[in-house]
Amino acid sequence: MSERETATAGLTENLSALVRHRAPALVACYLSGADEPNTRPFLSWAAANGVEVLVPLSRPDGLLDWVHARGGTEEVGLFGISEMVGDVVDPSVFQSVDLLLIPAAAVDRSGMRMGWGRGYFDRALASLEEQPPVFAVVYDDELRESVPAENHDRPVDGVVTPRQILEF
């Protein structure tokens, strides 16, 4: 098994374990890009196990719309990132998310998350009336001692890597 396949298997197991432990009614999870930890096997596991998942669609105005991840087809969206094709849910549905799994370039051991610089997930988090537990999904070497932070940055509650689940 290649290093990437091993990482994907570990990540899928840890994401599944987190969902089994927390038993959320609704999860929001990103659809991974080519250089990110692969979330697709987790999304397949969720669909096979009756876990309702929303995935984001990037909008030109810097906000996210959300669609159900029930085995939909993918197409290239903004910034060349694959996105799930589907009907956009009412924003109130996103407000009821019980667990949010988000991408990160790096996360430090205090929970500070460094994103990719576009602020989509920072704005999505800020839009929530009540924030559910938020876990960043990264490779093991993207968990750092510290990362730079700006005023708008919000810490996450935990991190999921191919080797571990850490709650802060």
Rank of each mutant, 00 (worst) to 15 (best):
M1W: 10
M1Y: 12
L11W: 05
T12Q: 09
E13H: 14
E13M: 09
E13S: 15
N14K: 15
N14T: 07
A17C: 05
R22I: 12
P24H: 09
A25I: 05
L26S: 12
A28W: 04
C29A: 12
D35T: 04
D35S: 11
N38G: 01
T39G: 08
L43A: 07
S44T: 15
W45D: 13
A46G: 11
G50F: 01
G50N: 02
V51D: 10
E52R: 12
V55C: 13
L57R: 13
R59V: 03
P60W: 11
D61K: 00
D61A: 05
L64Q: 12
V67R: 04
A69G: 08
R70L: 02
R70N: 13
G71Y: 03
G77E: 09
L78R: 13
F79T: 09
I81Q: 14
S82L: 10
G86T: 07
G86M: 06
D87I: 07
D87E: 14
P91M: 03
P91T: 03
S96P: 00
V97R: 09
L99A: 05
L100W: 09
V107D: 01
D108K: 00
M112N: 11
R113Q: 13
G115I: 02
W116C: 05
R118C: 14
G119P: 10
Y120F: 15
R123L: 09
L125I: 15
A126H: 11
A126Q: 14
E129K: 09
E129R: 08
E129M: 04
E130N: 10
P132T: 02
V134R: 10
V138L: 07
Y139W: 06
D140S: 15
E142A: 14
E142I: 03
E145H: 14
S146F: 02
A149Y: 04
E150V: 05
H152S: 05
H152A: 06
H152K: 03
D153Q: 07
R154C: 06
P155F: 08
V160A: 15
T161N: 14
P162T: 08
P162C: 11
R163D: 05
I165A: 05
E167I: 01
